[in-house]
Amino acid sequence: MINQVFFFYFSAVIVATSVMAITRRSVMHGVLYMLLLFFHIAGLYLFLNAEFISAVQIIVYAGAIMVLFLFVIMLLNLRDDIKKRQFIATWPMGLLVSSGILMIILMAMLTIKTGTQGQWGIAQIERLTHTVAIGTVMYTQYLFPFEVASLVLLVAIIGAMVLAKKRIK
């Protein structure tokens, strides 16, 4: 019972803040609603026994990505852009398309068949602690994708610096 009350609270806030984030005229307000959204998603992860992912969500999304967005918004002078029309002229068509795809996904979920249970049950994760368990999987089974992810981050660092630096003639 208490589980469901918490789930309804978190899902209501997640849906409400994501709608608010994409409909606000001011970009700054949108980013602050996104911050609230990320904290509630982290709460939902805690609820699913994923402590490490929850901490990464707060540190990386709320701490790094949103601060990056805030810095860029403060760097740009958006006074003229805010006065313009914010939605495209045919936005009802966008609403139709996205709600149609939502219907398709929900219909597909009615016929979903889940696979076999894995070996990382709640008792084993509790015995090892969650971070050790996820590290064991990540550094053995998924070592190569981990290295590729580090390469992607390196490319992003160099690319962002090369793109955003001032051209010196």
Binding site: I53, T114, G115, I134, M138, I157, A164
Partner: peptide, 27 residues
């Protein structure tokens, strides 16, 4: 619910890619 940690490892990679995408996009 399926008691398999592969999904959470995938979430970790998605967060890394999202960070890279945000950095390049904002640049």
């Amino acid at each position: 619910y399926l008691e398999d940690l592969a999904g959470q490892v995938l979430v970790f990679f998605i967060i890394a890619v999202a960070a890279a995408e945000a950095a390049i996009g904002l640049a």
